[in-house]
Design a protein around this nucleic acid. Structure first.
Length: 160
DNA sequence: GCCAACGTTGGC
DNA sequence: GCCAACGTTGGC
């Protein structure tokens, strides 16, 4: 089986937006508290993998730009920040439960590609993010779907 | 704000 | 192991 190379990661722009990532250059993808999403970051993400940066609960919700996985997986430090929003008192420091990767900014799209546009595209009918009830905050994306979204966005980045 | 979908928890 | 209750996500 070929390694996965393409991802979609969701963030509420009020919490962390593509503009925040552009300003900072890179960030820890912190606060993921879902086992399936964690397993993908822990077991599947590789340095260099490309990421669709998705704005959720936004106006409009949609793909706002591109990022790239920039580190190997490591424990999410926010799980041990007692006063932080992502504290997990049941996580053992000697065997941390929550794992993350860093992502770096690649490109901010001129305009968000709204979810409605993804749903309107027949070639994207099988894409996970357009499926009903799909709540994973980190999800794999087929290369063909990734390229299609980049084309819809008028992306500068070329996908080989 | 509503609510459908889905994950987690905990009683049994 | 079942499943009801509850919490969260996220589109609308």
């Amino acid at each position: 089986m070929a390694k996965r190379r393409y991802w979609l990661m969701k963030s509420e722009p009020g919490t962390y937006s593509i503009q925040d990532l552009e300003r900072e250059g890179s960030t820890m993808w912190e606060g993921v508290r879902n086992y399936q999403a964690r397993n993908l970051m822990r077991d599947e993400c590789q340095v260099g993998d490309l990421v669709l940066f998705y704005h959720s609960s936004a106006k409009p919700s949609g793909v706002a730009g591109l990022a790239r996985v920039s580190t190997a997986p490591y424990p999410d430090p926010t799980q041990f920040e007692v006063k932080g929003p992502y504290h997990d008192p049941t996580s053992d420091p000697n065997d941390p439960r929550w794992i993350l990767v860093d992502v770096e900014h690649v490109e901010t799209f001129p305009e968000v590609v709204p979810l409605t546009a993804l749903k309107a595209e027949p070639a994207l009918a099988d894409m996970l993010v357009v499926q009903k009830g799909q709540r994973l905050s980190v999800m794999p994306v087929d290369k063909d779907h990734f390229k299609r979204v980049c084309r819809l966005a008028g992306a500068k980045t070329k996908i080989r």
